[in-house]
């Protein structure tokens, strides 16, 4: 992201854009941050950092365009580039290894998704959230963006800087992984 040399908004307009277009998304931003970091203080810092950057680069935002997607992209980049390094919850796995495993062609053969509708209906939000939180971050992210925040594949492609076909396949794999975890959990708890 680069700061434009020409000033696009007056100080008053900046305030209007910030208050009317950015601030309404603060709840979604916090939820997204919390599902990435699992820590209240870290989430707060991440959201504040995102809004500071948004204000700093406000001239590169086109009024009336998709502010939510623009903010989510900043937050995602902050998390990946800066925040994850100093996070209280260091990555427990090498993401590159996980991604190459889950992007391989034969992975679906190893995933069982024999999950029944009634099983999910019997589960509580805590159990499903726990299963989601156990997914590697990039797979967790696509489910959050699609199923919780309602972004389209095209918007997700822009937020995540990946091709739309990758969004589609990663989302499918993420959902399979989530179901696999739920199936395992259901078996453990005797739901099945």
């Amino acid at each position: 992201m680069s700061e434009e040399s020409t000033k696009k908004y007056t100080e008053q307009e900046k305030g209007e854009v910030f208050n009317n277009e950015f601030m309404p998304h603060v709840d979604s931003m916090y939820n997204f941050a919390y599902r990435l970091t699992f820590d209240e203080d870290d989430s707060k810092d991440l959201v504040q950092d995102t809004y500071l950057k948004a204000f700093r680069f406000i001239n590169s935002f086109e009024r009336g365009t998709n502010a939510k997607a623009w903010l989510f992209r900043i937050l995602k980049n902050s998390f990946i580039n800066e925040f994850r390094k100093k996070s209280k919850q260091p990555a427990k796995v090498d993401y590159n290894e996980v991604e190459s495993y889950y992007n391989s062609d034969d992975v679906d053969a190893n995933i069982t998704t024999d999950l029944r509708v009634e099983t999910v209906q019997h589960m509580i939000g805590d159990e499903i959230t726990g299963a989601l939180n156990a997914l590697p971050v990039d797979f967790r992210t696509v489910i959050i963006l699609s199923d919780l925040e309602g972004f389209t594949y095209e918007e997700m492609a822009k937020i995540l800087d990946i091709p739309i076909g990758t969004v589609r396949s990663r989302l499918h794999r993420a959902r399979n992984m989530l179901r696999e975890k739920l199936t395992g959990y259901a078996t453990e708890m005797g739901y099945n």
Partner: peptide, 19 residues
């Protein structure tokens, strides 16, 4: 469709409390 809706509903109702 039913599984996807059930998962979505339960995730949506389980959002964190905003400070």
């Amino acid at each position: 469709k039913c599984i996807q809706e059930a998962i979505k509903d339960k995730l949506v109702e389980h959002r964190s409390v905003i400070p």
